[in-house]
Design a protein around this nucleic acid. Sequence first.
DNA 1: AATGAATGAGCATTCATTCAT
DNA 2: GATGAATGAATGCTCATTCAT
Lengths: 221, 221, 221, 221
Amino acid sequence: MEQTTTSERILDAAEALFVEHGFTETSLRVITRKADVNLAAVNYHFGSKTALIQAVFARHFDPFAELFGAALERLKADSPPSLDVLIDTLIHCALNTSSSHGDLRVFMKLLGMAYTRHQPNLREYLQDHYRPLFADFIDLVTQATPRLRREDRFWRLHFLLGSIVFTLSSLDTLRGMHPGETGHMPVRALAGQVRPMVLATLQAPSTDSAAISPFSQETSL
Amino acid sequence: MEQTTTSERILDAAEALFVEHGFTETSLRVITRKADVNLAAVNYHFGSKTALIQAVFARHFDPFAELFGAALERLKADSPPSLDVLIDTLIHCALNTSSSHGDLRVFMKLLGMAYTRHQPNLREYLQDHYRPLFADFIDLVTQATPRLRREDRFWRLHFLLGSIVFTLSSLDTLRGMHPGETGHMPVRALAGQVRPMVLATLQAPSTDSAAISPFSQETSL
Amino acid sequence: MEQTTTSERILDAAEALFVEHGFTETSLRVITRKADVNLAAVNYHFGSKTALIQAVFARHFDPFAELFGAALERLKADSPPSLDVLIDTLIHCALNTSSSHGDLRVFMKLLGMAYTRHQPNLREYLQDHYRPLFADFIDLVTQATPRLRREDRFWRLHFLLGSIVFTLSSLDTLRGMHPGETGHMPVRALAGQVRPMVLATLQAPSTDSAAISPFSQETSL
Amino acid sequence: MEQTTTSERILDAAEALFVEHGFTETSLRVITRKADVNLAAVNYHFGSKTALIQAVFARHFDPFAELFGAALERLKADSPPSLDVLIDTLIHCALNTSSSHGDLRVFMKLLGMAYTRHQPNLREYLQDHYRPLFADFIDLVTQATPRLRREDRFWRLHFLLGSIVFTLSSLDTLRGMHPGETGHMPVRALAGQVRPMVLATLQAPSTDSAAISPFSQETSL
DNA sequence: AATGAATGAGCATTCATTCAT
DNA sequence: GATGAATGAATGCTCATTCAT
């Protein structure tokens, strides 16, 4: 009669509520009520609220990590891939993974929530589980952008991660502010917008040191 | 003997704790204990926790808005400014404002927290108070990038906002992950990193429609 | 070992304290301490203080309403009852119901507290739940006092309700003021006092209009 | 410029709010805000909230007590007055006193609130200040109803007090329930309704003991 | 005579968690 | 595998009152 298991119902409800309201703002009471499940079931199945949060993440990240990891292995096997190919692979994996349950927006929003750090355990969890994967990716990017200073590459990658995570995280904020602009934009079209920025940013030449900080003398910071 | 007023002490404590732990995660009790102030003082001086959060914001944003607004007026009076000048003005104002109390990181982190939406009243507050300023800025950016499609410009601006906000928000996350890279990087040097990305992104040509979404056929989303 | 359930313990404690000190003046802390129960138990079992107040009422009123409703049905089935019979039925039901747990004084005091209106939700609750019962009773009284003007009957019924409720509500005030008079007066003897007043009042002829307000010309109200 | 004194403004605001919401439910904050007066002014002028409540009472009761006391003195000087005259005098004084500021309803509502006892100090205050007056009145009633048993008279007087206080206290409850019946009924017309009840009740013969409690054998109370 | 600031005690309510069944 | 009941700790907030000015 009832197809879904209790823990799946909890995960579904928790994910939706976490993404909409944040971790702290979502109580177990609300989750279990939405999942139509006993309050104690969360602690029974997951042990704690913290563990539930990690489980919500794992359900999204594990399939992506597997897909993306396999793709990187394939790329590594051949000659070192170009930057275009790397970026397209990343986007491809992100889009195809998340389509299994929930859209990319949920995936990204969770990622953003993990980074913007409330709930500190979460960051540790992600680092512990997915660091080798990210290291692989960064290695390949490094090979594909040999002329970029190491430091510059580091920051630009984080800027790019930030721009994507932030934009997708706040998509409905944006929709609220600019209904016309964002109305029917599907997530995959957004990916089209991301590509040129990523390429332009990573292909821009390294700044020479003299030009880095034209403002420095004016600030006391 | 005691130089600072009660409400300033509260604002200082609240700001530090909000930035470190988030709004919901920071209780009034912790704030007042840190500020060495009576618990009821928050409600006496600010009325509610929500109003306190807004006051923390206003203390950062109002000086910036004034500085940046005046600068934009000056730019508008002359001929339409180039993109470089606009971006440099923005960075300059951001750096010079926040230096008054607290660093740019706090400023950006607050901005990021407002966007990533927990505490929904906050977004409304920012929109109500600073919309005209942002509209002015976007107008000038539009004049400075005439060849960009309106839609592309919209998204790229948000990507850039995201990259900056996200990066500065998660600066200590990054420091935790890559001590070597980020160790002594002062905030104003980071501004030097931001500039080339911003220029490269906004100066990249608009994509032609055919190229926008090379992934669309592969995803069921 | 422990015979009574938690929610019964709460109801008992709450009832006693409400009657003695009023709703607002009785905190959940005091109730739970008296009931020897965890503070959160009230919200667990009843949801809110308001809901607890209603539950205290319901426990007294529901049995009375059932008893009185059934009695009225029986009276309606026969020929229209006389005023004596109606009044005696009412008193009988009031005495026999409340004797189950708590005395009539509690019952009446609660009724009086509901009427004298602090805690406005309560009046709505009583109206919503017991209106048909009261309507039935008033119908029968109307048939039993055909010579009374509708308006006069309305007011006199309220006067009578008031006299009973008020007297029983303030019984211990009276005992404090006139120990000799009220010392050992059992509640059921008081009922004997009520009867002649009720009958005399409802059987007094309607005033003729000229006599209604001999004071009107002297007051500017 | 400002006609009314601070303490009058406080008394006006407090009276209105007490009558509408009760003592405990009305905070000094609300009172002082309504009176457009500093929060500390209540404690400055009256010493405490309790003292403010008593002052609100005194402003209503003192003029009535003076008027009614004088009238009783005049009646005592002549031959013992009839019951009609006594009742009419009482009603007359009540109506004429209260008309000075605020209507009779406020007067009665305050009286009812004092009786139904939350705020226990208040009862003591009334007893201490007005007992001789009431004693005088009861003496005269006793002389005017020589055939009534002392005990019966005691109870019936309380029933009558209750009916009046209760009815006027809950006048707006009644208006809410029966708009048609109570719509334009001025308070002085209500006095016309009270009179026949009072006379009928006090003139009804004393019950004989056998008839007092026809219910006693059926109740276990 | 009046007031802005401050305070300690208390409020109803919600929280994640535990546990016997 | 699942749950109703219970709990201790903490939450934001309001209270009457005080006090220096």
